[in-house]
Structure formats: C-alpha cells, structure tokens
Computed example of a mutant assay.
Amino acid sequence: MSTPEELAGRLRGTVLPAVLTPMDASGAVALPALRRYAERIAAERIGGVAVWAHTGRGLYLTAADRRRVLALWRETVDVPVVAGAGVPRALRGASLEDAEDAAVSMAAEAAELGADAVMVYPMARHHGLTDAVERAVRLHERVAEASGLPVLGFFLHAEAGGYPYSPELVRRLLDLPSAAGIKIATLDRAVDCQDAIRAAERGRALVVTGEDRMFGPSLMWGADTALVGIAAARAGLTTAVLDAWTAGDAAGFLRASGRLDRFAEATFHAPIEGYVQRMLWAAVWEGAIPEEAAFDPYGPPPSDAERRAVVTCLERLAKEDDTAA
C-alpha cells in the first residue's frame, strides 16, 4: 500500500481515464464487454484508472455490480486503481448522517477489493450548511480511517451532483495527512477552476484536472495530472496534450490541445449528462465496446444527430492522423 506521497509521485504527469461501464439495453452490466474494454484501456499508456466515477455511473451501480467492476479492473490493469466513494443513488433519500456513513462504507469496500486510492464524491447536501467545511473535512478523515488508503478530494460541478469547494476547503483537505491531491471538475467555470488550482498548489499534493472542456487551459493554470472522462474512449488523444505540455513543446501542445478540444466539443455539451452516452458511442467507433453493450440508462434520451456528430469528429481526426503518417 502506497503512502499519499508515493502515490502522488507515481501519478503526477499521467492520465487516468475515468472508465466507462458497458451496459446492455436493460441496464445490466455487460461483464464480457467490460473485460474486453478493460484490456483495451490497459494497453494504453496511462498512469492509472478511475472506477466507480461519474463516467462509469459508479453511484448508480448495485453493490454487487460495483464489486464485480472493481475486481475486474484490479485483475486487468497493473496501474493504480482509484475508486470513487459517495452516496449510492438508492440512498439519496437517507439522512445526512446515513449518507455520510454510506460514502465511508463504499471507501472501505474499495480498499477490500484492492483499490489503491479513494476519490471522495462531494456531499452536495453539505453545501450551504453553517458547518459545511468542517463536515466535509471530517468526511474525508473518516474515509481515510475506514479505508487506510490515500484520498483524493473531488471538486465536482453541480450538474453532476457536486458543489463549488471554497479555496479554504481545498486547503483544509490538502492539509490532511491522508491527502494525495484534489481533482477539479468545474465544467465551464474558469474562475472557480483557477481559484481551486491556486489553492491546491501545495507542492507534494496532486492537482488533478477533471476539466474535459477546459483541459488545455487547466494545465496552463497549474494542474499536473489528469483524471478525465474524455480519456475513457480516447486516452491517447488526451495523453498527447499532457505530454506536450510537460515537455514544454508549445507547438505540439497547441496542436494536440486543439484536436482534443474538437472531440470535447462533440461530446461535452448540453445536456451535459449525455456525455456518458456520447463517450460510449466513441468507444464503439474505436472498437473498444460492442454496440450491444453501449447503453447508458441513466442519461437523457440519445439522438441520432448527436451520434453522427461524435462519429464525424472521430472520422476527421482519424483522417488527419492518416495524412500526418
């Protein structure tokens, strides 16, 4: 088991796809398709994977499916596995105390199944409470105590069930001995993203971008690692941007960032919850997930026009690759 500092050192400068969970038309997890997809992701040049994250519909999965999903990823990859810990959708009507307990229990379960770190979903019901900061800090302390694992905080935009973390809360979370870093996913709120990154620049801790739609800018503002849903289907496209930035290759960064931004434009737009289905379509086009396992039963109804836009973007990017070769 790694210390927070060891884990941060291993992950810094790498991409961690927030991986998809293949499901059939009935919403059942398609385990054979998941294994094939996991093998495909494992072959990419990645620093780790994030399971039970929003892209993989982690809070919607049954407890049994969560266990199967994490166990399969643990068997398949030899990189760190970061597991989301939050309140399962089935318990969203529970009291705040029971909801906090559920998040802690999920973290402990992840540790038992072999996760290397835990990423704590924001407890949206903390937002607006007079003791919100103290409750959030205590939740992260409890997660660390129950799991024994390094912990990532998770500043998540409201459209995905989060709320804006204040700079004070970001600093308090990173002062915890268990803190490996913080993931920032504000969607399109540039000032919130910049403020959080500034508050998170602590030296030892990871500053993890989850900004699929502001990926390049978030690196320029100070993020040093990436945990993003957009890498669930196009890990190489994402890695190229981070590599160019890290290498100080300005021309390469501009080119790679522009390509990734075009893909993000086709996949991350209103309704934003539709991005999971759009990433599944991209994974089908890539040959990573079969058509019969590319359903997201929890997002908005998909449209043929949206799928055509995703496929058209991928075809154009592929044509550019062929031309460059």
Rank of each mutant, 00 (worst) to 15 (best):
F253T: 06
R234S: 09
V207Y: 08
L219M: 08
V207S: 05
E265F: 13
A251H: 07
R204C: 06
R234H: 12
A244D: 05
T267V: 15
P300K: 00
P290R: 02
G248N: 07
I272G: 07
R255N: 12
P217Y: 06
A270M: 11
A235V: 12
A196V: 10
A199P: 13
A233I: 02
T239M: 12
E286L: 03
E286G: 01
A256Q: 07
L260N: 09
A233F: 02
D261S: 15
T209C: 06
P217G: 09
I197K: 07
P271N: 07
A264Q: 11
P217T: 10
G287E: 06
A283I: 02
R278G: 03
Y298W: 15
W281Q: 01
Y298N: 09
A232S: 15
G299M: 01
A223E: 11
A282K: 03
G216I: 08
Y298T: 04
A235M: 06
P301K: 00
A199W: 05
R213P: 05
A232G: 11
T225V: 14
G299W: 00
A205E: 15
A205P: 15
L280K: 12
T238C: 13
R213G: 11
I289W: 02
R234Q: 14
E273V: 12
M279G: 08
A293D: 06
S218W: 04
M279C: 12
G252S: 06
L242I: 05
D192G: 06
V207G: 09
P290G: 03
P301A: 01
R204V: 13
V276D: 04
D192A: 15
G258K: 10
M214C: 11
R234I: 02
P290C: 02
T209Y: 10
G287H: 04
